[in-house]
């Protein structure tokens, strides 16, 4: 069976700017995959090449085994893209928008699925409303529905939750999760790293057009196995014996490394011996945000 997404040596220049500098990426059918990276890293450019909106300067891209340039019709039939920009056609209602989108994909009667999409995305009561009269979050949800009219095996969401309120974000993710369980491959970009951590099995981190980390989410979190202890001391003086553990300071608190919980006892004893009082104490598990920041920082050096 062919890969859901396969990208080899992908490069893209915009004039003198190199948006992508040789990206290789394989995503298997059924994966829930996150593409992360700071602003301008090249995420949208990569997605646009998959969608045929942008032509690559070098390299190849395939969707379900179909080359996005030579076999573009098959590639596009297999792909649903939620664009990052909030775009809409002010001439039409929500339902018309979805009916047209179905038609462009060659689907004549799609009303049952359109109704289901409207229901899942809480848009049923807006079906006959003109696009112009929707709020930003509602327009975003219509974009999600548009990407799904043809039930594509591969679904790409470019920051789908930007501007969507908490409750609907949950509903949206529930829906996308269900689609993933039914076998759809999901590729998503987001700046909410806790979302990516919770949802995605695998993560790629992109920086300045290069992949700087690519692994299962669990592995990335484990690699950064150092737990941290955050200590507030009074007076603000770290006992000599704890100096080697010092990672840094944050808002007046010391950040100390902790390899396993057994070490805690010794640390507390050192503090007591030094006659220092503990004002605040917490143990922090590494999360994807920290891994992300470290990776981005590390890759810069």
């Amino acid at each position: 069976m062919s890969r859901a997404i396969s990208v080899r040596g992908l490069a893209k220049r915009f004039g003198s700017l190199e948006a992508l500098r040789g990206v290789d990426l394989e995503i298997e059918p059924g994966e829930f995959f996150a593409l992360l990276g700071p602003n301008g890293a090249g995420k949208t450019t990569l997605i646009s090449i998959l969608a045929g909106l942008v032509r690559a300067s070098a390299g190849q891209a395939e969707v379900m085994g179909h080359d996005v340039v030579h076999d573009y019709r098959a590639a596009r039939r297999n792909l649903g893209v939620v664009p990052q920009e909030l775009v809409f056609d002010p001439f039409f209602t929500v339902r018309e928008t979805l009916q047209f989108q179905s038609g462009y994909f060659g689907i004549k009667r799609n009303d049952d699925w359109i109704d289901a999409l409207l229901h899942h995305l809480n848009l049923t009561d807006k079906a006959e409303t003109n696009m112009r009269r929707l709020s930003g979050g509602m327009k975003r949800r219509v974009l999600v529905a548009q990407a799904l009219v043809h039930k594509p095996p591969v679904i790409v969401l470019d920051e789908p939750t930007a501007g969507v309120d908490v409750e609907l974000r949950q509903t949206l993710w529930q829906f996308i999760r269900d689609l993933n369980r039914q076998g759809h491959t999901i590729l998503l970009t987001t700046h909410y790293l806790e979302e990516a951590e919770e949802l995605c099995e695998r993560v790629a981190m992109l920086k300045e057009g290069r992949i700087v980390a690519l692994d299962r989410t669990a592995n990335l979190l484990r690699a950064d196995s150092q737990r941290r202890v955050e200590l507030r001391l009074n007076p603000r003086r770290l006992p000599e014996a704890l100096q080697p553990r010092l990672l840094g300071e944050k808002d007046g608190a010391f950040l100390l490394s902790l390899h396993d919980f057994g070490e805690l006892e010794g640390m507390l004893a050192e503090i007591r011996q030094a006659g220092v009082q503990i004002d605040g104490f917490c143990v922090r598990q590494p999360d994807l945000e920290e891994v992300f920041l470290q990776t981005m920082h590390g890759a810069a050096r």
Binding site: P83, D89, Y104
Partner: peptide, 12 residues
Amino acid sequence: SGNIVFFLLPPL
């Protein structure tokens, strides 16, 4: 307006 993507994305 950018809504040209609506007909650039499908296999037309």
